[in-house]
Write a protein that binds this DNA or RNA. Structure first.
Lengths: 332, 332
DNA sequence: GTTTCTTACATTATTGATTAAATAAATGAA
DNA sequence: TTCATTTATTTAATCAATAATGTAAGAAAC
């Protein structure tokens, strides 16, 4: 049997309320009794039961984290940012993989609320009306990280995806390419289908160009679809000389796919990736890429959540972190 | 205010015990009352409070996971295996990063036990006496994943690291190299310092060779130390023609470091990595590597933990999963 | 027809903390 | 010394479930 606050109270000859006060650092305890209690705690090896505490105080000091896939390099980095800040504020995290499946997401949300988490960090793809409904119904704050709600109803932390892509593609166009191909993740995710794509479109149109569907390849974020993408491009009659790729992992695929066909990067074909995961320096040539500060997005999202959980007033619920382009050797 | 079991009981005109029985699928409820209760639950949007349930039942259906660093490709994959099986058995996981820091590990262990987790999966480096003491003192089962306790006192899931390295190095030696260099992770971790290293030594000695310290480089698992390692080797007077590398990420560094020096892999220098992370196919040449089934290790560890939590009898507490070598293009 | 068993519930106690209200003790001012 | 305040501590209610025990109604056994 584990020792309870009652055992400690008896051992120290005080009431459980006093023990509770000592444990919680309440100042209204005489130093001598505090000492007695502390000794009793030590003697019995008492460890407060967080479940009982959670029931009584209605705070569990744990937050839920819904993430598409923790084994993805991108999300794992985000998760680390979340966890570090959570730890800093004495929260633990319950981590759940959703695979971006809407049913799972809703189900997990309810499981977490059932477990009485004090808040939730949500990462996903497309945010539907139903998501927002569920979020609103929740009794605790929810913050989205690297996930956009186009109506800005839910607090979130992101970068300016549209401008980030716009800048990268514009850079390539200014290098004199007559066209820039685009490898993107699934378009159902509005980050891909709306923001990033619009950035691409805008950059093209600014140069008097139009989006050419044969120059756009929709992959599934994996290295292999990066390879597929170049192969498709190189088999077409309009071979690109510059490719913007929506994620680093696909960009590695693109570089290797091109090299496998005997092309030289960046001489024959320039490539810019997106995210600046650790992969970007693990290729030859090293990858020029848009820096999305994943760790920071996670950290800031968690920090925002702590404020909301504390009922502090926050000026801006939709935070946009800065981005930049890191030029390496895959561009001239 | 959230609706409680009491509200449902009143709404349905039954006692809370009956509601509890319906919610928990106890068969001793007349279909007609079950229906009444279910309707009341639906009407009120009742969601059981897992904290109260946990206090009363002494089960939280959550397990703790202590992991060195979730942002590492290796551990993230392990974590995914753990989480998938946990979900399958209706557990949630509380995930904590330890950075392999002993104080943090012990602290996290106590935090998790305070939160009344039903079990713990532990991943770390060196397991000290103190670790084992703490593990034994815990009132819930603990399983280690990809982590060895040399005394086999703690249940664990691993592969046979010594033999895995032995086979890889032997393979290189049989290819006719007069020596095989070795890039390893920190030797404080007995997996590196004892098992893997012994595998290396054994393979060498079987060919009448001895370990030459100048042919051993201790890295910190990062890509960059892989590069450092080759550079050190190539600057020495005994330039290796084959290198065994303790992790894939360092192996990528080794390959690129060698290529940066104008060497060809595998013609001038053969490389074998370890782990078979997704990185292995993201290099040119693709990396031959020892397959450590990370996802499976996590999954099996979690499965083992569910059995222990259920107090099922398990035949073998120390499970050793099979490994193999995946040959790709970094070896001849 | 009484007794015994089930079935289907209800009642009440319990879980291990927090917290508000009540009370006791200590301190200070008049 | 007395009363008011402040400080320290206890008592008891509460949190939202589960678990153990109790009970009424009907079926089966004798």
């Amino acid at each position: 049997m584990n020792t309870t606050i009652y055992d400690v109270a008896r051992e120290a000859g005080v009431s459980m309320a006093t023990v509770s006060r000592v444990v919680n650092g309440n100042p209204n305890v005489k130093p001598s009794t505090r000492k007695k209690v502390l000794e009793a705690i030590e003697r019995l090896g008492y460890r407060p039961n967080a479940v009982a505490r959670g029931l009584a105080s209605k705070k569990t000091t744990t937050v839920g984290v819904i993430i598409p896939d923790i084994s993805s390099i991108f999300f794992a980095e985000l998760a680390r940012g979340i966890e570090d800040i959570a730890t800093m504020y004495k929260y633990n995290i319950i981590l759940c993989n959703s695979d971006q499946n809407k049913e799972k997401e809703i189900h997990l949300l309810n499981t977490l609320l059932g477990k009485q988490v004090d808040g939730i960090v949500f990462m996903g793809g497309k945010i539907t009306e139903e998501h927002v409904e569920e979020f609103k119904r929740a009794s605790v704050p929810i913050v989205m990280a690297a996930t956009v709600d186009m109506n800005e109803e839910v607090p979130s932390v992101n970068i300016d995806y549209q401008n980030a892509v716009y800048e990268a593609v514009s850079h390539l166009l200014q290098n004199g390419h007559s066209s820039v191909a685009y490898v993107t993740g699934p378009l159902e995710d509005p980050i891909n289908g709306y923001y990033k794509f619009n950035g691409y479109r805008k950059a093209l149109e600014e140069q008097g160009l139009k989006v050419d569907d044969s120059q756009v390849f929709v992959g599934d974020y994996t290295y292999d679809t990066g390879i597929e993408a170049v192969e498709t491009f190189l088999d077409s009659d309009k071979k690109p000389t510059a490719i913007f790729v929506g994620t680093d992992e696909m960009a590695l695929g693109v570089i290797h796919g091109a090299q496998d066909r005997g092309l030289k990067v960046p001489e024959d074909i320039e490539v810019i990736g997106f995210d600046n995961t650790r992969l970007a320096t693990m290729v030859r040539p090293t990858l020029s890429t848009v820096v999305q500060p994943m760790y920071d997005i996670g950290a800031v999202a968690m920090r925002l959540l702590t404020k909301l959980m504390n009922k502090e007033t926050v000026e801006e619920h939709t935070v946009v972190l800065p981005h930049r382009i890191q030029f390496r050797d895959s561009t001239k």
